[in-house]
């Protein structure tokens, strides 16, 4: 250990701080069980409501109060934070590779996909379009995105799960309509040529489109689109393309953390709640499509808008797609390479 002297010193200097913290933690030992849900960017509103409902239910059934803390940021950085020691009891991330990365670090058992129904994906979404009031550019389907002077808002696929899905949806829309890889590359290149801002996360992109008024169309999750349109008070509209990618955000209990903290029971019940009738109703209310038969809808009696979906497998599956499209020197980088188009 070449660093041992400073290491010892810095640890000792930290001791005082940590002791002070531990004292305040001990004082709160009789308080509620606390659970930390580390999630991706756009699920803040959803989990706020889920947390309240679950806490009530758990208190009623088990007589223990539960306080659930939320952490939200770009999915990839959240996974990294958990791997680096963010004390998550459960992770509810945007894309499969992010949960898998946490599992690979040893924090989550490798069979995580089989612990809950539907490969541990409790709800779906789709990538849709948000346009300005009255759809002045007449955007109805993917091909319309690259007509005229349409300008597009979507976050950076390198750093955002939302950005990755939008990219893959555009790519897949060409492939699943019989286009070739070259056609797909041309189409996606054209899309990013029309993207004036690449925000680092889904929420930043939403703010750019709705609050700062940039762009004609915003590619985003259906759930996020509804939230955005509701907040805009009539200035924005949703457009469903004929075909889009199915968004599958997986969930997992972080085994090592819950075993250390003794919160396994609550954590498992919490994720299970996402599959319960009450949980599904809340999920639907926030415009995420609950998994399973006869899913509840945001408004009773109104069906979910029909949309033809393809999955990640249509563009090669996650491990291959991540490397091919978003890896260093991959398809996305090639789009921006000067003279490389």
């Amino acid at each position: 250990m070449p660093f041992s002297p400073p290491a010892v010193l810095s640890r000792r200097s930290l001791a005082a701080l940590v002791v002070a913290l531990a004292a305040s933690a001990a004082a709160a030992a009789d308080g509620p069980i606390t659970l930390l849900n580390v999630s991706y960017d756009p699920t803040r509103e959803l989990y706020r409501e889920i947390n309240d409902a679950f806490a009530k239910k758990y208190q009623a059934e088990h007589g223990r109060a539960v306080a659930i803390k939320q952490s939200h940021a770009a999915s990839g950085s959240q996974a990294r934070a958990v791997i680096d020691g963010l004390d998550a009891d459960v992770v509810t991330l945007a894309v499969w590779p992010d949960v898998e990365a946490v599992a690979k670090s040893g924090l989550v058992r490798s069979d995580w996909q089989h612990r809950y129904d539907n490969q541990s994906v409790p709800y779906h979404s789709v990538v849709v379009f948000v346009v300005r009031k009255g759809n002045p550019k007449g955007i109805k389907d993917w091909a319309d995105l690259v007509k005229g002077d349409v300008s597009i808002i979507t976050p950076n696929p390198k750093t955002s799960g939302n950005g990755k899905y939008s990219f893959l949806a555009a790519w897949g829309s060409v492939l699943t309509n019989g286009g070739s890889e070259e056609d797909a590359q041309r189409f996606v290149t054209e899309i990013y040529k029309r993207t004036p801002v690449l925000d680092t996360g889904a929420r930043a992109a939403t703010a750019t489109f709705s609050q700062k008024g940039l762009g004609d169309v915003h590619l985003t999750f259906e759930s996020e689109a509804h939230l955005e349109v509701n907040e805009a008070g009539g200035d924005l509209e949703i457009v469903y393309p004929k075909k889009s990618i199915r968004v599958d955000p997986p969930v997992a209990v972080v085994d090592q953390n819950v075993d250390k903290k003794g919160t396994r029971h609550v954590a498992e019940a919490y994720l299970g709640f996402l599959y319960s009738p009450e949980g599904r109703a809340i999920i639907a209310k926030h415009h995420y499509r609950p998994w399973g038969d006869s899913p509840p809808t945001p408004t009773a009696g109104e069906a979910w808008p029909a949309i033809d979906t393809f999955t990640i497998d249509a563009v090669g599956g996650w491990p291959a797609a991540t490397k091919k499209f978003f890896g260093e020197g991959g398809v996305f980088d090639a789009i921006y390479q000067p003279g490389g188009r």
Binding site: G76, S77, N156, K158, P196, V197, E328, Y336
Partner: peptide, 20 residues
Amino acid sequence: NMPFKTEIAPVLIVARLEEF
């Protein structure tokens, strides 16, 4: 954050971190 145009080095650091 446009690659090759307005992307600064610290953003790249964050992007690489998110690829683990």
